[in-house]
Design a protein around this nucleic acid. Structure first.
Lengths: 333, 333
DNA sequence: TTGAAAGCGATACCAT
DNA sequence: ATGGTATCGCTTTCAA
């Protein structure tokens, strides 16, 4: 075991007190230029760097944000994660990352997270029970839900305005003469799915459309593929399909072409939600609603910091509007 | 600021010493059933959970593994990350995650990582200078490179056997009558690219093929798309393209179809490397080499743990064979 | 088995 | 500006 270098070692070599060494490494402390140099030189020589753990213990701040992410492998999320890491790095925070089974409640791993004294917690596409949310609250650990909402719990949340997005899609399809609409749902009990569907169907009803096709998926390519097969077996078949996310839309497109030998958008229009990179690929050219990821992340981090600084901050839900991205998968009138 | 609950609070409520509370939470310590229950009950009541930071300070173990990942958004890596998280969770370790610019040296963020006293460090698709590697070594922090190798440094590495993979691909193409082969390179100076190319071209030469087309990409969809365009402008054009990874292969396929209106594999065969999920999509059905991700990760973690337990363990490079996955994008004779 | 006390490596307050 | 010292919350001897 190589001996660990501590501030005491540096202090001895530099001929200063241990306190002085500490000051050199804490921003905004006054140390004479002379001593600062000696300390830095000694530190360099010994290969010293401050022990963040000891620091956290006394400052009561770990500078670590916990991130719980359920769907790391679903194409939308790596971007979210990457952005979070970048933004957190900019404000000097590290990320302790946890996975959860998709759509699982994270109550069981929460104690583990809390043990690590994270300064805050970001939960994406998973939920915690309001009981656990309450516990974080009491304990003073701010929690932000990303892309999920839970009602009546003292936690902030930021998500895309899914209801409005669903509505825009209904309008686009109807305005361009589609008659037999279909919806491929994501996992049924997720807030994202519920909201997108609600926005879509509400707008249909508002425009006096009473019937539409419905199939259920689980946000995966395969589930979109399979749902599309079921959908296209109807006669007459749908002439437009709204999928609760892009990856299912892509699965649906592949099924429509490979299994039915039909053309998009001439035979069927397909529209997704998220605007993942693959939506832009030449094979798909998918019309979709773009989630304002950057804005959402900015907002999430802002809410988190606000709550860290000011524990009395009242939990808020922010919904940020997504933008319709017109590509080639929807037939325009 | 809500008061933090410490073991002392629990001890008082339970009417035992603080030491006893500590023992209840450290596996394999003897505490009478009687007191254990009282402690647990008091802890429950107060909402206590041990402070991992204080524990780390004294045990000299953080139970945290640092992961540096350069290409989180490149489709192969989310799977790698997810698997790492799962395996680490199984052995009771947490992951502190850092991003680096792709292919960047991570020397600048290393001090930050080291401050957090990680028990070990996994670096994927990025490298550290041998100077920094040496520093980790001295400091006693084991480092494992994943999917990268650096020569002459005291760090272990695990990667796919890229050279053998490149060779298999050359054989497959040649055995099936392809005449005008092409290679689309990944970022030129990455070990992955160098090895895949070396294996491919060595095998070509061995079989007396002296000429082949060459274009350079950077592992992205767009770069594959663009490289394919340049490639297909040759006359006569290539009849088979090996792309250094799947995502470039997919870009190349889209370009071949969309820009030249050609058919795969009748007009051109395309083959990739990695076996990402999209390789299986109906639109691509991409023949490729499957990276044995699970085995690689098992190996990486095993090496890391070995080194943590036994600091004198000699750094090793493990290459694990990938498997050829035959799908429909290569024309068979 | 249990409790008292030392210490992990910093920060922060208090004098000087 | 600098040094001495208490302290953060726990684990780990050492006695009892």
């Amino acid at each position: 075991m190589p001996k660990r270098i501590t501030s005491i070692d540096v202090a001895q070599l530099a001929g200063v007190s241990q306190s002085t060494v500490s000051r050199v490494y804490s921003a905004g402390s006054k140390v004479s230029e002379d001593k600062r140099e000696r300390v830095l030189k000694a530190a360099e020589e010994l290969g010293y760097h401050p022990n963040a753990i000891a620091r956290s213990l006394i400052t009561q701040r770990s500078n670590i944000i916990g991130i719980v992410m359920a769907n790391i492998t679903s194409p939308f999320y790596p971007y979210v994660l990457d952005k979070f890491l970048q933004h957190l790095a900019e404000i000097g925070k590290q990320a302790l990352l946890f996975t959860a089974a998709p759509n699982q409640e994270i109550d069981d791993i929460l104690p583990l997270i809390l043990q690590h004294q994270v300064d805050g917690l970001i939960v994406t596409s998973a939920t915690l029970s309001s009981e656990m949310a309450e516990r974080c609250h009491q304990q003073g650990t701010p929690v932000i839900l990303f892309n999920r909402t839970i009602p009546d719990a003292p936690v902030s949340a930021v998500c895309c305005d899914n209801v409005a997005g669903g509505g825009k899609i209904a309008d686009l399809l109807l305005d361009n003469g589609h008659q037999r609409l279909a919806y491929i749902a994501g996992t049924a009990n997720t807030s994202t799915n519920i909201e997108r569907e609600a926005g879509f169907t509400a707008q249909l009803k508002k425009r006096s459309v009473e019937n539409w096709f419905y199939e259920e998926g689980n946000y995966s390519y395969e589930s979109g593929y399979d749902a599309a097969i079921r959908l296209m077996q109807n006669a007459p078949r749908p002439d437009a399909i709204f999928c609760a996310n892009d990856i299912m839309a892509i699965g649906a497109m592949d099924a429509i072409r490979a299994e039915f030998n039909l053309t998009i958008p001439d035979d069927v229009s397909v529209i997704g939600f998220d605007d993942i990179p693959m939506a832009r690929w030449a094979a798909y050219d998918l019309t979709t609603i773009s989630q304002p990821v950057d804005a959402m992340i900015d907002e999430a981090i802002a809410l988190l910091l606000e709550k860290i600084e000011n524990p009395d901050f009242v939990p808020t839900i922010r919904r940020i509007a997504g933008e319709l991205v017109l590509r080639g998968s929807v037939k325009l009138a």
